[in-house]
């Protein structure tokens, strides 16, 4: 049983030390957000990343979040993950949330593959028993064999991606949050990876996927919202929202 209720959520990012690298910070935080000055002498600069966003999701919902860069997609995902407490509004989440923004949190280049499976697994919310139980399956999927006993700094980029992917997709999420989908490795691996992601999505109760790829959203979601400048512009069926996204892009 999983439930997400987002009511009138607003997120303002304070910008600190903007005199030093104001431009840089703005670009990093949000391209397209609303920049405002607050407080006495307008000394506090904030970027509004989300404004009055409301959502309600339950079991079986597969929500796609569409929008251009800086529309607030990632911020919304991070609000759902419980990383950012909203500046205003209310978020209610029931169920275990698994954010897969970075497939291997806590990864240490000097640790072996096996050690990293432990660390990342713990950070992704798995219990020791779960990790121990899934170790063989994870190791098998990576196809890394004896390399797993070596420090991961000896891995190629592709091997590292495969390891991270295998760990991340081993979880049993109730609410799965994905940023731009998950990808890993060469063409042959991509086929197996797709099956694994499908299985992961299949066993999660709720999926929230942020992307600007219409195809990805079309294939994985059954509902969608379109964000622009931190606001929900359109919400509803996938087709309808993709249509609105296209119109918005065409209008520039």
């Amino acid at each position: 049983m999983a439930l997400i209720v987002v009511e009138d959520v607003t997120v303002d990012f304070p910008i600190y030390g903007f005199q030093k690298s104001f431009r840089k910070e703005i670009f990093v935080r949000a391209i397209g957000g609303l920049i405002r000055r607050e407080g006495r002498n307008s000394s506090r600069v904030t970027v509004q990343a989300l404004e009055n966003v409301s959502l309600k999701l339950g079991d079986g919902d597969r929500l796609g979040i569409l929008g251009a860069n800086g529309a607030g997609k990632s911020t919304l995902l991070r609000v759902l993950a419980g990383v950012y407490a909203p500046t205003a509004g209310r978020v209610l989440i029931e169920g275990r949330v698994s954010p897969l923004f970075n497939t291997s949190p806590g990864l240490d280049m000097d640790d072996t593959g096996y050690e990293n499976i432990w660390t990342c697994g713990l950070f992704l919310g798995m219990t020791r028993e779960e990790i121990a139980g899934k170790m063989a399956e994870i190791a098998d999927f990576t196809e890394l064999g004896d390399y797993l006993a070596l420090p991961v700094r000896t891995y190629s980029t592709g091997m590292l991606a495969r390891l991270g992917f295998a760990i991340a997709t081993a979880i049993d999420p109730e609410i799965l949050l994905l940023d731009e989908g998950l990808g890993a490795g060469d063409a042959r691996f991509a086929e197996r990876a797709k099956k694994r992601v499908d299985a992961l999505v299949e066993r999660s109760n709720v999926l929230v996927l942020a992307s600007h790829s219409e195809g990805l959203i079309h294939s994985m979601c059954n509902r969608a919202v379109l964000l622009h400048g931190g606001r929900v512009v359109t919400a509803g069926g996938v087709e309808e929202v993709i249509e609105a996204y296209r119109r918005m892009n065409a209008a520039g």
Binding site: R78, A81, F101, P105, F123
Partner: peptide, 9 residues
């Protein structure tokens, strides 16, 4: 920072 911005813990 990396962890705090990724995960709720």
């Amino acid at each position: 920072e990396g962890l705090i911005k990724q995960l709720r813990f």
